[in-house]
Design a protein around this nucleic acid. Structure first.
Lengths: 342, 342
DNA sequence: TTGTAGGCGTTATCAC
DNA sequence: GTGATAACGCCTACAA
């Protein structure tokens, strides 16, 4: 049962461990023959170096970790692909680490940094509200990507890439207004939430106000706590409640495309039509918003660009080419079938 | 910069490293006071034990790894949640490891087993066709979950949990036949593929044959290689091609719900209706199949049950309560709006 | 080009 | 209840 070690290999080959180590790690100072011979023995005996030992000894490794909160979010799929491709292209290795909803991503990051001797970290998703003290324990560069940020944060202490959730939300709600809608409902995060849900709600509020419209609290619907947040099911249940309340409205802005899909379903089940009876708008620009029937008006986030820029900044940070920077990408209003003039 | 170690903490506390180690790891042989004192110092100095060193030294750790191929598949989301919950409930820790499409999951598993001293492994997704020799290098118990399997495998050498893709596929195609459809197209994996796509295709073939129908190769559509497999986009593009080919058909079976969604979109764009002009059926039982408009007839895989059974078997294996076993769950035919009598 | 030996940070063994 | 000390498996000066 005892696993085979580098020493065993060395003995079998009749060489020293150093030589074996050189063979494994493609070091220059080794003759082709001995290397080939060693590799052959390694293959035959299925020797696999122990990563823990390597990481322990190694002072630094060329690896980037991406910590992602809410991995169920299809929005991240495309981003992950870009991250993986780009990181590999730079000859770094790539670790994807899921962070639980209730877990503290900084703590996970600190631990991982020590364990894997990371060169850099990308935080994806979730909301960022950590003490400066904690942030300082992170000794490698990191970038926050598509993360809602507490405004009180000092922008000189970190880097970030995202869209302006407030502004984009404003944009799409304003678009609904421009279609003549005056009673616009919203499905958003619970009020005690401090994430992008909140930012998008603020955009909604401001857009209405600028149009001289009152925010009607009866049309402000919070996602259900006991259901997965931002899910289709959540949108469905919330919309069902709204429809049953009898509160009149003509348009509905869901702060994510998945919520919008669920909302449409609830509307169909009540015998109504989209956009005939209700206009529905989403947010994010997921594939499903395009493929849904009707296709759903939404704000498309430029995921590829966001991912690429995130890495560009991270590598600049790693190479000390620059200090912290913040990049805001514009979202794109995708006008589709789910919204209509009133 | 140099990280703080257990020795530093020991010195600061005026105790030996052993004692600190005991405090960290909740060992019994330590007084409450010293433990509290040590923990306080640890907190104050933000000491975080180095995982590599722990793993290196530890003989065994209570951790289960789930290796997942194709993490973009929303089908796995629910399963992962179950895994995480159950594994935590058993006081094990949980590692989710993504495996790249082209990566060999067994190699990843072997490496991870050594690095993290795993107690067990769950393989999720992909197709399993590894040599016995390689499998034997895995010294910890493992279970294959929802994985297509080469039939030539010796069932006494591993455990598995899944639905019978062949049978379920047969079931839904037979259902389409029972509605009077005789020209049934299929969107499936490329013919050189050896995954569940192939099994589902075989079920389709058999169902038609048993109904005395010919498999019309012009109605057998393969997913595009250059697009993400099983994606909505793939279903969309393939269906567009099929419609443009002018080949007559009245029903379409897509081997995944996402493909089915894309297919519906293509049909709508051509000015046709579902199920008025074409019946469409999917496979998997994703949320979106229910929320889509029209809701999509599909085979629902009992994901929770599959996940739970997977762990039950794995833990039985770990506790030596049993040897390899195979569990096949029945899928459930969900008859919805996207299919109609011809 | 190759081998020897020390140490990475932790836990386990065994004394006290 | 507590503390030295030897591993764990590998990498890397340094020596040969």
């Amino acid at each position: 049962m005892a696993s085979i070690t580098i020493i065993d290999i060395a003995k079998m080959c009749g060489v020293g461990v150093t030589t074996v180590s050189r063979a494994i790690n493609n070091h220059p100072d080794i003759s082709e023959e001995t290397k080939a011979m060693i590799m052959k023995v390694i293959k035959e005996n299925h020797y696999v170096p122990n990563n823990s030992a390597r990481n322990l000894k190694r002072s630094a490794s060329k690896t980037i970790a991406v910590l992602i909160k809410g991995i169920t979010n299809p929005f991240f799929n495309r981003m992950i692909q870009v991250f993986e491709k780009e990181i590999k292209r730079k000859k770094y290795s790539f670790i994807l680490q899921r962070v639980d909803e209730h877990q503290d991503e900084i703590e996970v990051a600190i631990e991982l940094e020590k364990e894997k001797r990371l060169k850099g970290i990308v935080f994806l998703g979730g909301y960022f509200s950590h003490s400066k003290e904690k942030l300082e324990q992170l000794t490698v560069p990191f970038v926050l990507s598509t993360i809602g940020m507490a405004p009180e944060f000092d922008p000189t202490e970190f880097s970030s890439v995202s869209v302006d959730d407030f502004k984009e939300s404003y944009k799409i709600v304003d678009f609904l207004c421009s279609l003549g809608h005056r009673k616009i409902a919203i499905i958003t995060a619970p009020m005690d939430d401090v994430s992008i849900g909140k930012l998008r709600y603020e955009g909604y509020k401001k857009a209405l106000e600028d149009r001289g419209l009152q925010v009607d609290s009866r049309l402000v619907c919070s996602m259900k706590d006991h259901l997965e947040s931002y899910s289709m099911e959540n949108g469905y249940v919330v919309t069902k409640d709204l429809l049953e309340s009898g509160e009149p409205f003509t348009a509905l802005f869901a702060v994510s495309d998945s919520l919008a899909v669920g909302a449409c379903k609830a509307i169909f089940e009540s015998g109504k039509h989209v956009p005939g009876d209700y206009s529905v708008a989403g947010f994010d620009g997921l594939d499903i918003a395009y493929y849904y029937n009707p296709s759903i008006t939404t704000i498309r986030q430029p995921v590829e660009e966001i991912a690429e820029e995130t890495l560009r900044i991270l590598f600049d940070l790693i190479n000390k080419k620059q200090s912290h920077s913040h990049k805001i990408f514009p979202g794109e209003l995708m006008i589709r079938e789910s919204t209509a003039r009133i």
